[in-house]
Structure formats: C-alpha cells, structure tokens
Design a protein around this nucleic acid. Structure first.
Lengths: 122, 122
DNA sequence: ATATAAATAGTAATCATTACTACTTACAAA
DNA sequence: TTTGTAAGTAGTAATGATTACTATTTATAT
C-alpha cells in the first residue's frame, strides 16, 4: 500500500480519541489539518484502516463509528447522550451449547450494555 | 390509538416469521394483501408497533430488522448469509462492577454472536 | 348521518455512504 | 534526477434506507 498523508492524519485522529467518532466528525477534525480533504477520502480510508486492522468499526444504530482501540473489548452505551464507554467486561457464553443446540459455529461476540452514564443518572 | 387494517396486516406479517425481516420485505409481503399499501405506511407502523411493545427492532449493520418475538432473547448471526437465529442463551454480566467501576447504570444488554450457521460450516 | 381527527397513498426530501472521473502524487526504474 | 505509471485524491453525482409532506380517505364518537 502506497503512503498517503491523508490516511496518516485520519488514523491519528481516530487513535487519539476515545469518543468513537463517526466519519463526519473525523472529516471535520481532518479539515483542521488538510483544508481541502474530501469526505469520500475519509470514508475510503476509514474502511482501509479497518480492513488492515488499524482501527475497528462499531455499528451503532444506523451509524458507523470508529475505534482506535483494537484490543478485544466491549462498550457501555448511554441512552441519553449516546456516549460509548470502553470496558474490560468479559462476554462469556457456552460455546458448546451453541454448537450442539443450534448447529452454529460461533466466532465473535458483539455485545453492549445500554444504560445511563454518570452525567445522566439523576 | 385508532384501528388500522394496514397496521394489523403488518403486525401479523412480522409475528408470523422468524426471519427478522426488514421494512422492504414486510412491504412486499403486505402488498400481497393490500395491493396499494405505501412503503411509508409500513415504516410508520413498524415504528408504532415497536413503540407500543408489540414487536422489537434489531439494528443489524446499517439496516433495521424487526422481530415478532418480544421475549428477552439474543441472536446468532451468520456472517455468510446474514441469517439471524433466536437463542435462549443468557447474557450475564457483573452489574455491580459496572456501577462501581464505570459509574454507569446498566439497563439492557444487546448481544449477538457472529459465526457460521449449519448451511455454511464447510 | 355527520364531523373530525387520525391514518393512508403517493411523492419528495433527507441522511449516511458509495461510485465516478479528471487531476495529483508516491515511488520505482532508467 | 528525471520520467512513467498506477494508486490516491478532490469534488461531485448517485444510491439506498428512511423520514417528511400533503391531499385524500377512513375509523369512530356524537
């Protein structure tokens, strides 16, 4: 893969925040560094970075958000403000039961907990 | 809420399948019973049925799918064919840990397991 | 029966994302 | 160090899912 300054900037933006931003936000941040960067470039490079394992994507309702934390982890989502919070909680399920009962080969778990973050608990 | 034949038909379609259909599929089925039903009517009523607890929605990638099974349950998703399969697996997490460590009030878990269904395991 | 507010059909608009195209640039080889 | 070229980009158009709008229809209370 050829070097691209735009891709470098985009990667650094995603990896420098814990806010799990969407493409639009990354685009706005990137414009601060590259005034005429294109939204299409942001979308394309986010996908490339995801496919090469540099970042992860999270499907949140009907938007895609990106995460610079590529370690296995799950999220808490605040239903009030939409914030996603990284956690180290484990998702353990009975692998054998799934194979036996459902004839299904499990591979990966997507898991998040909805609730209210500290800003919104009363 | 006023009675609507369209809403009744839409509800019966969603509650008569385990395929977790999207709005487009429900629309096609509904047209078999009401030739000139409008896609907007389908979207509006799916949302109403969800808000009144008659059906549930599942955000799958960038599409919304609906589920007539309103009992608490989780899904297996086949990465090959996109099939969603209902399960009775439990999602147990350490509620106290989440409150203590993250100052977060958990309310609901969304959880699904990606893998391959029996049609696609070799 | 009639009034009326809610629901509908049909169509236009929106929003996130992807596709297209002419121009630019990284970088390999001369 | 130039130069050829394929990969990458900016800018814009297109797509697909969903929502909004509006004139017409319909459920239902009086």
């Amino acid at each position: 893969m050829r070097y691209s300054y735009q891709r470098e900037v985009i990667k650094n933006i995603v990896c420098s925040t814990k806010s799990h931003p969407n493409a639009e936000w990354v685009f706005c941040e990137a414009k601060k560094q590259i005034e005429n960067i294109s939204l299409g470039t942001v979308y394309r490079n986010l996908k490339i970075l995801e496919n090469t394992g540099k970042i992860k994507s999270i499907h949140d309702d009907n938007q895609v958000r990106y995460d610079g934390n590529i370690d296995d982890h799950h999220h808490l989502k605040c239903v009030e403000c939409g914030a996603l919070i990284d956690t180290d909680i484990q998702s353990n399920f009975d692998r054998k039961k799934i194979i036996d009962d459902y004839d299904f080969e499990p591979n990966e778990v997507k898991f998040f907990i909805l609730g209210k973050c500290k800003k919104h608990t009363k």
